[in-house]
Each structure stands twice: as C-alpha cells, then as structure tokens.
Nucleic acid binder design. Structure first.
Lengths: 244, 244
DNA sequence: CGCTTAGTTGAAGCGAATCAAAACTAGTGG
DNA sequence: CCACTAGTTTTGATTCGCTTCAACTAAGCG
C-alpha cells in the first residue's frame, strides 16, 4: 500500500507506433511527427495491484495513458470512508490537463486495481507539445466531456438508485468496459475490482454488495465462477435490474 | 413546467462588450475581434422559475452562457426519481462542446431555479468560431475540467456523507457561489433552490432536508429569515458539520 | 378570504449499515 | 502435500438513519 517508484520491468522506453492502445487513446489522432514528439518524452511504468501512482494532495508532475490493466480514482476521508470517483481502463488519459497553471495538486489518489501499466509524460513537456499541436487539446476536451458525462451518470446512481440497482448497473458498466478492451463480446470476464472496491464505487458496504450479487445469481441473471469471474450475464434481465 | 419558446423581454440583441458576466465567463479572454464574432451570433433569452431551456433527449441546438439567475441540470427517471447533477450560476457555460460530431442529444434537462437569463449561441456557428479562435477551446477545456472536479467532489458527498453532512456541505457551497456572484462577503443571501431541489441535489427527501436545516438552526450554526433567506452562517461550525 | 403550493413536524416502517462469525482463498513455510 | 496464517467473501442477527405516510402550518396569489 505504498507509492511505487520503480517496479517490475521498471522504466521502459516507449514505442508509440507499436503501442497497444495507440488507436483508441489520445495518441490515435496524431501524425507521425506528433507521435514522435510524444515518443521522446514518454516512459512506461508497471504497477502491481494495490500500488499507488499518485496520492491525493501530491504535486501533479505527470500525465499518463493507461496501457494495460485497471485503475481506481479514490477520494478518502480521514475517518476511513472512501469513494471511488472513477475507473481507469486501457487507453484512458490521466491528469487534469489545463494549459495554464502549473503547481497543481492531485485531487485524488490513483491506485492499481489489477496489475496496471502506464505510459507517463512529464507535465511541462506534455503541455508544450499540446500547445504546438492543437489537435491534442481538442481530443483532450472531447475526453474530458465524456468523463464528465460518466461522472454525472454515476451521480444519479449514487443519489437515487437502490442497492440492487447499483450493483446491477455496476456489473453492466464494467462488463461493457472490460469486453471493449478485450474485444470478445459474450463469453464472460474477470471483475477487476474486489467487493470492497465495488462498495466504495457504489456507495454501499461490502456486505450489501455481496448479498446483492448473491440475489442476482439466485435470480439466474448472472453466473459466476469463483468470486471474480463472471461466466455470463443475461444482459436484458440485468439491464432491467439496473433500473433506468 | 413547459419548455419556453419566447418570454419576458424575449429575444434581445447581445451586447457582449457591456455584458454583466463578460470578464468571468468564457468570453473574458477574447479579443475585440473574437468578441465581435460572438456578438453577431448571440441572442438573449429570459426564463421564469420552473421553465426549461432544454429537455433531456432533445437535439442539442445551442450553447449558452448564464448571464443572470440560477439553473439546474436534472436527470429524471420515469418513476419520478430525479437527481440534480449540477447547478448553473452566472458566467457558467452550457452545452457539451465537442469539436466534431453534430446531432448530439441533451444528456439532461436544464430548468430555471430562479428567474434566469441566458446568452445563446447557435451550435454550428459557435463551433466554427471555436475552430477559428483556439483560445476559446482552451478555455472550454479549463471550464470542463473544473466541472469534472466539482462533479467528482459531489460523488463523494452522494456516496459517503450523512444527511446532516450533505445539507451542511450544500449550504456552504451555495453560499460561496452566490456570494461570489454578488461580491458581498458576509451579510446573508437567498437560497436559489427549494427544499425539494436541495433534496434532489443531495440525494435525500424534502422532509430530511427540512429536518437537517432545522437542526443546524437550533445548533446556532445558521440563522434564517423565512424559508429562503440565510441571514448568517457560522462558517467554521458549518464547515465542521460538512465533515471533510 | 379561500385556494394552492411549499415547508415543517410527528409516527411508523424499511432498507442498508453494523456487528459478529463462519466459509472460503491465497500465500507461506515446514 | 499439508498445516498454518492472513485476507476476502459470504451469511446471519440486530440496529439505526433515512424514507414513507400523514397531518398540519405558513406563505403566495387570485
């Protein structure tokens, strides 16, 4: 549960042109020249489950793309309460990019939910690139708008949905995201989050999450193998259970 | 409770250079030339309390700036449950601007919480302007990032705060926003939202909101005149009650 | 002044949290 | 391979905070 400075294969030179998330990430729209600019300033870093990329309140020094794995954006209270305000999947961009202003603070911690690989860009250098290539900023705006939409959708869940609706919605969303990443539509997937993470994302407790998953299984909406693998989901029934 | 097509003073020509929110809004960073471009395409429209600017699912045809009053971003469920996912104060920008893609749908309804005046820009024309003047897009990005931060902060409230913390936090936030707009720091203000709106924003019921405000008053944290006017707040005590 | 809507207050019920413990998993070392 | 430990998930019993339902009060408006 500590910040990682150097792990696994450690720093690796980035090879943007051959990158796994090249097309779906921010980098997708860049020309060869622009891509080269990114290539020079980027480096790879791997995180094991539970390790932090940044901590709430740290100085923001880097931007990043998720290359592999799943991450959590966590806001924590001193008394132990925690809320996951967003999930990070491959090709997602990390960091509150604003063209002006440096000395920014990280608004939440970023923790690896599974083994996770990031492609890091030093803040100042990335900002300079973004000013040279306005296409980068456009794409950042589009991504930020999507994130805002996702966040507001989740606000509806947190404010107005019941426990069972929350869990059903969560499974539906994660199922979609995971399957998009893997590109195989209907054969099950591994949940990237623990029960405790699901609780912190849905505003529930571990016990309630566990019970609600149990209900969905008994109702035949869902079939699981172990605690993490979802074998299949009745998408329509789950969609009903998710409730609007 | 219907969409308004033409009301009050109705369409007015915009006079950007003399606009009340000229400096704090998106328009603040524009040159005389750019401002002129906006001036030509914009028009003013006034909404009475309860009237809608757009409805969830409508085609998105316009962007706007809030000039006066307060608005609500509302997502509603068929069964009557509603969640306010954001508030609009003077100088706030309205509309999910993405440089590409037209045919967008409004993701939520926008309703006037008090009398409200907007400065409207036709979608296509505004997009063209934004492409000509990249400074506009930069500022849009900065604003969108702020909104995202606000939304995520609110997720923490919805997911993990108690009823009394929610209400205290709400009062603190609205107090700040209203006083920023008016620029008088410590002499009380009018709540722009009804109890029912507060409930829909905090994920509570009207009754609970009412009771919690009552508690805060009895505790001497807050003094009110009627149901809408806050005479003064013990900022420190309220901040404690808001809880992190 | 009566009518309608908004806000407050009280009593009862319920959904999710809390508390407690058992079942299961995964990792470690003998 | 199994015993041991630590962590996660499930299950059960109980409690509590908020909702629901209902009545009442205050405020706005013809």
């Amino acid at each position: 549960m500590d910040t990682v400075t150097e792990i696994g294969p450690g720093k690796e030179p980035a090879l943007c042109a051959a990158c796994a998330v090249r097309n779906s990430s921010l980098c997708g729209a860049l020309s060869a020249e622009e891509l080269h600019g990114l290539n020079i300033i980027s480096r790879r870093k791997t995180f094991e489950r539970g390790q932090f990329h940044v901590l709430e309140g740290d100085d923001a020094l880097e931007f990043a793309n998720v290359v592999r794995g799943v991450g959590k954006l966590v806001r924590g209270a001193p008394d132990g309460r925690a809320q996951i305000v967003g999930l990070l999947f491959p090709s997602d961009f990390i960091g509150s990019y604003a063209s002006s202003g440096d000395g920014a603070q990280e608004p939440f911690s970023i923790e690896a939910a599974s083994e996770m690989e990031l492609c890091l860009f030093p803040r100042a250098q990335f900002q300079k690139l973004a000013q040279e290539f306005p296409g980068l900023e456009s794409r950042l705006l589009a991504r930020t708008l999507t994130e805002l939409q996702v966040a507001r959708d989740w606000m509806v869940l947190l404010g107005r949905k019941t426990a069972s609706e929350k869990v059903a919605t969560f499974l539906l969303h994660v199922g979609q995201r995971v399957q998009n990443a893997g590109c195989h539509p209907t054969e099950g997937f591994d949940l990237p989050l623990s029960r405790s993470d699901i609780a912190d994302h849905t505003g529930l407790t571990v016990e309630t999450v566990s019970r609600q998953i149990g209900h969905l299984r008994k109702a035949g909406v869902l079939e699981m193998e172990g605690t993490r693998h979802v074998r299949w989901m009745d998408h329509d029934a789950l969609s009903d259970a998710a409730g609007f």
